[in-house]
Design a protein around this nucleic acid. Structure first.
Length: 551
RNA sequence: GCGCCAGUAGCUCAGUUGGAUAGAGCAACAGCCUUCUAAGCUGUGGGUCGGGGGUUCGAUUCCCUCCUGGCGCGCCA
């Protein structure tokens, strides 16, 4: 699909095999850095030189002689350097590609690779103990974009938010709220060890008292817990709404206890003989599955006798499998990477047919926040952090999303709040949106209905500028970029591509006038403008960023 | 000490799974608005791809080793 590469590759394979190459030959086709080398290049002659016992350049020549140029859709093939073969695409191949692009419209870039298979993407999954901070923001942007990429490539995606709404931290939340309620009643503030100090707790306490006049003393810890969790979930939902992220499903950790899944999981692991008791605690032999030490599942009586967090986590992942998700992807901060081995080990030990690499993990490195030239120490307990909402209010949803997506997840990210705000007008996302708006403006000024543009009636030979041929080829790369990004679960590839393509659009826009040109030229350029606009819009939409018609 | 991630231009980062002369943005400097948006465009300068070995036609990319930074290594979550 991408600029005729598939047909070309198939023809290279055919020619290679005709010359004696093994059946599994998979020639690498790539875009040369320097466009002067042509549109596509392959190293297949160098790869096959040794197995076939021939000199690379001789082999390259024989390959070229064997290939059918019409079938491959190329106008020329040249040997270069140690044995590269550089191909130049037939102009008709590009024209057909752009015509197909317009016909596909908002579907251009989609693929059926996933064949409608179900996949659950879990992300954010915050404890309901405070507002969502920048780290969650990165995770939300990543998780949503990955989900979107999978949808574009044919998967049936469910975005899922797992609430860790039980355990010690929730108890601390209840106690912290209680302390604030009692403070309102005139008692001295005594936030417990491990409690939460943020001002939002005081606000929740205020609302609690207003809605529970009968418990102004804050004696009903159970009611306090439920109220605080409910309030914080509401807040987190609003944060995600402001960010434009929608989850299909929410899963409560507490439900795993109430419906007995945690108990059943432990019993199953026991029955399978993967556990043992030591010092009064129940251990899982995770070392059988690559862990460096066995892990406690149930604490000893002195420590409370409760389950450690990873037990419900295993039970939770069993439900993903049982709910029919043959593929599961978890987007998490790298500080949780030790859970990967543990959860997978638990699932393997259950022996219920869950594959070894289940679930897949996308770990992103930490976000540090710079403000006033200094790093803001993020601590929910101390109440100092920068929330997702702060960022959105300061620099806008689109810019925040792009900022989080423009770089690889596995490099650390320093979010300078002051810089993001002061540079909001120079943020790369505006550069991309501007390209889209400029193209839209051409249609607006010309009084042209872009959806009525017909590529089948234009003379593509009119598009002779280097900027035009390069732009067309870049546009046709889009499906391959999407496919690669989806397979690698790396949305930043789309972000990088969009920025690069926006640059080509600005360049072309500056060089080539569209309206009021002779009709054949104007019509051809309108097609190109429409095609470029479509690709930018599809890419931005995929990343959850708006594509404005004017700015 | 062990494990995971990273180290590329002054700064923030890409680099198509091993290719040809390593690229963008910002910052710096010099230019371009009577024509569809100057949130744009053109040009200039800027590099020991952390160091050292190895693998091969060819390494920023793969392997080994060392250095630096982040994260993790709990009967916390």
């Amino acid at each position: 699909m991408s600029a005729g590469a598939d047909a070309l590759r198939a023809e290279i394979v055919r020619a290679s095999r005709a010359l004696g190459a093994p059946a599994d030959v998979a020639p690498l086709l790539e875009r040369p850095r320097d466009p002067a080398f042509g549109d596509w290049a392959t190293n297949v002659a160098m790869v096959l030189a040794k197995p076939l016992g021939q000199k690379p350049r001789d082999l390259a020549q024989r390959l070229i002689d064997t290939m059918d140029r019409n079938v491959a859709g190329i106008s020329s093939a040249e040997i270069a350097g140690p044995g590269f073969i550089n191909f130049r695409l037939d102009a008709g191949t590009v024209a057909r590609g752009i015509t197909a692009l317009l016909a596909d419209g908002e579907h251009f870039g989609r693929a059926a690779t996933g064949a409608g298979s179900p996949v659950v993407v879990e992300f954010v999954s915050a404890n309901p103990t405070g507002p969502l901070h920048v780290g969650h923001g990165r995770q939300a942007a990543l998780g949503d974009a990955i989900s979107s990429l999978l949808e574009w490539t044919g998967w049936r995606v469910s975005r899922e938010f797992y609430y860790n709404d039980s355990g010690v931290q929730i108890e601390n939340l209840a106690l912290s709220t209680q302390a604030r309620v009692r403070e309102l009643g005139g008692a001295p503030l005594q936030i417990p060890e491990g409690g939460y100090h943020g001002a939002y707790i005081a606000e929740i306490a205020g609302r609690y008292v207003a809605e529970h006049p009968d418990d102004a003393a804050g004696n009903d810890l159970d009611a306090l817990r439920r109220f605080a969790v409910q309030e914080l979930r509401k807040e987190q939902d609003l944060d995600m709404q402001a960010f434009g992220v929608k989850f299909e499903t929410y899963y409560l950790e507490s439900s795993l206890y109430t419906d007995g899944r945690v108990e059943r999981t432990v019993e199953a692991l026991r029955a399978n003989g993967h556990t043992y008791e030591k010092d009064g605690a129940l251990f899982l032999r995770t070392t059988d599955y690559g862990d460096d030490q066995d892990r406690v599942m149930r604490k000893s009586a002195e420590k409370g006798g409760t389950f450690t967090y990873f037990v419900p986590d295993v039970a939770y992942h069993v439900t993903k499998w049982e709910r029919g998700y043959t593929r599961a992807i978890n987007v998490q901060g790298a500080d949780h990477h030790s859970t990967v081995t543990r959860v997978r080990a638990g699932l393997q030990a259950l022996g219920v047919g869950i594959p070894q690499g289940y679930p897949e993990y996308v770990l992103h490195q930490m976000v540090t926040v710079m403000r006033g030239g200094e790093e803001v120490k993020i601590s929910k307990r101390a109440g100092s952090y920068v929330t997702v909402r702060d960022l959105i209010d300061e620099v806008g949803r689109d810019a925040v999303r792009y900022f989080f997506l423009m770089r690889k997840g596995d490099s650390q990210l320093s979010f300078d709040v002051d810089l993001a705000r002061s540079q909001s007008e120079e943020n790369p996302v505006y550069y991309i949106q501007m390209a889209h708006a400029r193209l839209a403006n051409i249609f607006r000024v010309g009084g042209i209905d872009p959806s009525a543009i017909d590529a089948t009636q234009v003379d593509f030979g009119q598009l002779a500028l280097v900027e035009e041929t390069e732009l067309m080829k870049a546009l046709l790369d889009f499906p391959a970029i999407v496919a690669g990004a989806a397979e690698a679960l790396e949305p930043h590839r789309v972000a990088t591509y969009l920025h690069d393509t926006a640059g080509r659009i600005h360049l072309w826009y500056h060089k080539a006038h569209v309206l009021n040109e002779p009709e054949p030229l104007m019509n051809a350029r309108l097609v190109l403008a429409r095609a470029a606009q479509q690709v930018i819009r599809n890419g931005l939409t995929m990343l959850g960023i708006s594509a404005p018609e004017r700015m």
